[in-house]
Computed example of a mutant assay.
Amino acid sequence: MIENLKEAQNISFEESELIFVGRVTEIRNDGSYVLENIELFKGELKDSTIVNGILDNYCSNSPRKLYETWLVYTSYDVEGKISISNCGLSRSFQFPYYYGSHLLPPPPPFGLNDPLDILELEYLTIEYKKRALEELKIEIQFLREMKNQIK
């Protein structure tokens, strides 16, 4: 569970071999996937723009939709592939919540039948997502600053 986002960002930046924003260009039947680099913050790509990923254990996450955009903190395995950890700061722009995020909307109450209550829940979910996207935007700005400090 991530309790201090700023501290987690600093630790993740130091510990990750590769940090980038990528777009999913291929999802394979075996759970592997291909990401096209959009912006590289740390590390070197084995290929100029393509990163091959695998679903390698129970703590791995795998993109589920083509053309999703992801912020990825990772390292290469011995075969030059990456995996996206469920337990870190990597996340999809479409579902912008990191592990333990305080912005993850609560589950709906059981037996929600009133249309106004359903609308209120939808509104609340959108508000949480907007705040999570703003947090993601600030994180990308932080990563750009860190990248510039390395140069």
Rank of each mutant, 00 (worst) to 15 (best):
E3A: 15
L5Y: 09
K6G: 01
Q9R: 09
I11S: 15
I11P: 01
E14L: 02
E15F: 13
E15M: 13
S16D: 00
E17H: 05
V21W: 00
R23D: 05
V24G: 11
T25Q: 15
T25D: 14
T25P: 15
R28C: 08
Y33F: 09
L35M: 13
E36G: 14
N37A: 09
F41M: 10
K42M: 05
K42N: 11
K42H: 04
G43D: 11
G43V: 12
G43S: 13
L45N: 04
D47E: 10
D47I: 13
D47P: 07
I50G: 12
V51N: 02
G53T: 02
L55W: 14
N57C: 03
N57H: 06
N61Q: 02
S62D: 02
R64L: 07
K65G: 14
L66C: 03
L71H: 07
V72R: 04
Y73S: 00
T74K: 00
T74H: 00
D77N: 05
V78W: 15
I82H: 06
S83M: 14
I84D: 10
N86P: 00
R91V: 01
R91G: 00
Q94E: 03
P96W: 05
P96Q: 13
P96T: 08
Y97K: 02
Y98P: 01
H102D: 08
L103K: 04
L104A: 15
L104Y: 09
P105V: 03
P105T: 10
P106H: 04
P109W: 11
D114S: 09
D114R: 06
L116P: 03
D117C: 07
L119F: 11
E120D: 06
L121F: 12
E122P: 01
Y123G: 11
Y123I: 10
I126V: 02
I126R: 05
E127N: 10
Y128M: 09
K130C: 02
K130G: 00
R131H: 15
L133T: 02
L136I: 01
I138D: 10
I138G: 00
I138T: 02
Q141I: 07
Q141A: 02
F142L: 04
R144K: 05
E145Y: 10
K147T: 06
N148P: 15
Q149D: 04
I150P: 02
I150V: 13
I150N: 14
K151Q: 09
